[in-house]
Design a protein around this nucleic acid. Sequence first.
RNA 1: GGGCCUGUAGCUCAGUUGGUUAGAGCGCACGCCUGAUAAGCGUGAGGUCAGAGGUUCAACUCCUCUCAGGCCCA
Length: 1080
Amino acid sequence: MTHFTLLPTDRPADALELEMLERWRSERLFERTLAAREGAPSYVFFEGPPTANGRPGIHHVFARTLKDLFCRHRAMKGFRVDRKAGWDTHGLPVEIEVEKQLGISGKQQIEELGVAEFNRLSRESVFKYRGDWERLSERIGYWLDYEHPYVTYTNDYVESVWWALKTLHDKDLLYRGHKILPYCPRCGTALSSHEVAQGYEDVADPSVYVALDLVQAGGAEVPESAVKAGRTLRRILVWTTTPWTLVSNVALAVNPELEYVELRRKDMKDDRTIILVETRVKAVLGDDFESRWERVGSLTGAEMVGWRYARPFDWIAYPDGKEHEVIVGEKFVLADDGSGVVHMAPAFGADDYQAGLRHNLAFLQPVGARGEFPDDLPLVGGMFVKQADPLLIEELKRRDVLWKAGTITHPYPHCWRCGTPLLYYARTSWFIRTSSYKDEMLARNARMNWNPPEVGEGRFGEWLKNNIDWAISRDRFWGTPLPVWVCEQEKTHVTAVGSFDELAQRTGRALPGDFDPHKPQIDAYEWECTVANCTGRMRRTPEVIDTWFDSGSMPFAQWHYPFENAEQFAAQYPADFIAEGVDQTRGWFYSLLAIATGLGDALPNNGSDTAAPYRSVVVNDLVLDAAGQKMSKSKGNTVDPWEVIERHGVDAVRLFLCASSAVWVPRKFDERLIREQAVRALLTLKNVYSGIFAQYANFGWTPGADDPAPAERPLLDRWMLARLATVTQRADAALTGYDATAAARLLLDFFDDDVANWYVRLSRSRFYEMETADNRAAFATLHEVLVTYCRLLAPFAPFITDWLHRELTGDSVHLASYAMLTSQPVPEAGALETAMEAIRTLSTLGRAAREQAKIKVRQPLSRLLCVAPGASEALLRDLAPLLAAELNVKQVDFATSGDALVTLEAKPNFRALGKKFGKLTPQAAAAVESYASEHLRTFEHGDALMLTVEGVTHALDAEDFTIIRRAATELVVEEHGGFFAALDPEVTPELRQEGLARELISRVQRMRKEAGLAVSDRIVLTVVGGDEVRRMVDHHGPWIASEVLASGLSFADDPDGRYHAAQDADLDGIPARIAITRND
RNA sequence: GGGCCUGUAGCUCAGUUGGUUAGAGCGCACGCCUGAUAAGCGUGAGGUCAGAGGUUCAACUCCUCUCAGGCCCA
């Protein structure tokens, strides 16, 4: 006989999960699930590779749960879902980790250590945390092939990336440029826009106004001041938040279209004027400036173009042949802040640089790669530029050009890894010309199924519209080396190398067996320039590439395409599905798209009319702490996933993460809520299995041919199966549509509400008496429900569902399909669900009526009169016994319009009436509501009903209003939404007696329990009491005996003999004494 | 300053294409059950749907603005 193991109750939350993990491992279950789908159509998933240089946190659990969830669902739907793990192993994060470990900092110290040694340590460091990631991923049930991961530093991977870069180069999409880039002086490298995006922080910076002397205006020399010796009469006001760039000032910019004003002090102690943009006068000089200043004149920006001024610092000589100390007109100058005059330092600002090119301005760059001024500069020589600000402000004051100095708090980009404020800095860099195929990226993006859509259209789409070329080179050490060789004599002679073979060919000798494409080894490869008549040598450009280019290459590089696995890659591209956090919008989501679009038909299935490289993407938002604060180490509010999992089990954590709110809304991580929602839901599942199903099935039920066919089972069972089919279909649809939250909530609600709280509760007694048809029907139905529910829930809670599914069927749930166990359609399923819904509504109303009448459910009552609109009357009648039992009434009647006690009312349907009557809807509705009962009765009999409102006449039909039946009686009435339950509160002597019998049964059951009797133990029951008790026992004796498993029941005047238990009882106000003895 | 999201009961969240008593869980109050029992169930009280305008016969729902919070960008 099958034995269903009961769930142990007293074990830690995670004990069962740890057991399952061990089982999965020893069975190699993941591999078996893949093997089971051999030859099936593929559902392609790309794993975004985590950087294994920090411990995974709870937000990683979230993202990985989502990835796992949809992959499991599709696998159960019959797809083959390969899931290759991957590791992002290059880049600054790794280098910084090594620097920390060595206690060194910056490029210089790395070079002192030796790049070879540094990169050796980097390679080792990468997997310092790999164990953590693998253990946690396994623990949370994230199924991924960790035995064959792609690793971005391997030779194969690097070679594929080289191929991609060369392909882009051949398409003229890779070029070297000179641009102002955000630059981290500590790390010594430029950052890409998506890296910069991660590091904005509010900081206090100087806000400095300087007043610079104009020396030439409108072609004439500006006269000297009579008051201030050596100064001119006119000055222009300039604003900056980076005083250190004033050292490199070469020009001022005004907006030609803006109005500027010239002002002079009224007191004449100073005869000099100042010029600034009109709209900023009050902000700069104060609201009351008119009491102190007089307007000398106004002028447009255009008028000032070409004027000359004297720069604030004159330490650096201007190069010959370039313009300097001149006012230029630029439209990017705004009047929102400052003075409407912008100082230009072309080396330190993107706008400045462009203006410099347009106006042939001098280019001063007195700042080294470490962000320091040269040693020979006066005053601030050798200082880090930002630290030099206070000294420079002092110097401005000393020179009497400082107008005012304060501080301003504004967001400023910082290095996302080391926190150093970034400098905008002119650098040579390699770029991918992404802006040249921006439109195609947008077109592909529009074809992608974004969840939620607004991230694709808004956040990502808007950003793509403003796409700028991707600066992919990094002046660092541990990364994929840029496979570009440049002629030392002529920089335009450039060769991109696309494979290791090609490298060998170029150099003319085979690569060594231990060939390592990383720095510094790779830098030793060089050859003679092959351009005709050129005698230069080709040397590798020293940079490595942005690690985002590595991860964005994973679709092909994970297969070492195009050197190997072409067929496999073609079958695994593009991805059907990826999922990452919203922070990847400009990270991986972008790099995948930018690379795939740039490569175009160099990749299979990658036409411009596709959604490649990924068809669907699910974006999850942040995990906040319980108070809604962002988690951060500095706040100390991070959550250790291991601790949470140990406390609640990961099934509960996964369920909570999916169900608590839409995954693309930031969710608060509150353990209290995990307990309330997920732990409780799983507990109900376990209770129903152990406490109802397994416990009693073990008395002798196993699934088999003796079970009645679904069509033969009671209506309650058929309803349950109909619901199950509906829920199966809906959960499947939700997951197919990538709505994890809807699916999770649907499933949790279904089990709690429909299964546990309705089907099981109403069926409980059916499980006690074995081997009847009804008993077999109940077990078969509950078995099917449990098995199917395990399958539906398995993608969310893979542990407990697998344990249960194995107990129930002998097989792992993860080898099952996402479908019902048997799935024979239930006739009239929809009507049955509707009718049961009505019964449940009436049950609520009936209970409310009992509360209102203050009659407890144990006291039987004679009659409940109901109205249930919209449900099949035949089904309602068939279901009525359930309602009668639930409410403990002898009879349930459904009112019909013909009943004498019933009056009819019409409830208008505004939606339908609105279409007919438009503006007259309120009047029409009022008219409908006022219809008399008799009038409605004739309508029910088929008479037409015409309604005229203010001369407008329409025929009304059944859609335009709902007829509500009300019983005009003395009964206790509750109603809601057209549903109506009227309870007859009269307790007749017979009912009273039966109520007492129920009281007695209840008492005895409690005593049995307190006496420690098993549910199957037989007893002898003795009851002592007055006449009323005697009559009750006489009348209901057999029933009482069968309910409490009494083989003997006697009434006595006087207690006698020895009992297992005896007690005085108050049976609803009537004293009695009850004694029981076990009958062995 | 720009883009996107969010604001509904004490708390966490639902609320279909606008349709007239705005729902659930938790918590709370009261009660039931005692064959799921270190469980289970019911009933009830809680909301001017952030605020102000507008469109409409009708707005939690659509539009505009404001406020508050969040993410991303300048």
